[in-house]
């Protein structure tokens, strides 16, 4: 998202086939939205490259981030807080 997006219609720029998407929720600037339905475990593709796997089924128009996309390599990826990316697996006492 180039700007903060509210739920509803938005325009898709770039060279892909999609020109329009319907956001299911508001999505912050710089974050990703699914353009198609993605099954759990399926690859998530950005810039033509796999950037992670769906940690749960993702619907078209849904916010794609820490809660539903996990790294293929980084095992801590699945334990990060959606709101601010902070780790939840480190003990402080």
């Amino acid at each position: 998202m180039l700007t903060d997006g509210m739920a509803g219609e938005c325009q898709v720029l770039g060279e892909g086939t999609a020109t329009q998407a319907t956001l299911l929720s508001s999505i912050p600037r710089g974050h990703k939205v699914g353009l198609v339905d993605i099954a759990e475990g399926a690859p998530i593709i950005k810039y033509g490259v796999v950037i992670g796997l769906a940690a749960q089924p993702i619907h078209a128009g849904e916010h794609v981030h820490l809660h539903n996309c996990r790294s293929q390599y980084d095992e801590r990826s699945a334990s990060l807080r959606l709101e601010d990316g902070c780790p939840t697996d480190t003990r402080y006492e």
């Binding site: 912050p28 990703k32 794609v64 790294s71 390599y73 990826s77 601010d84």
Partner: peptide
């Protein structure tokens, strides 16, 4: 965490 808050989800991205 700063990368995540800035919209990047994984090390691959």
């Amino acid at each position: 965490p700063g990368n995540f808050a800035g919209g990047l989800t994984t090390i691959e991205e």
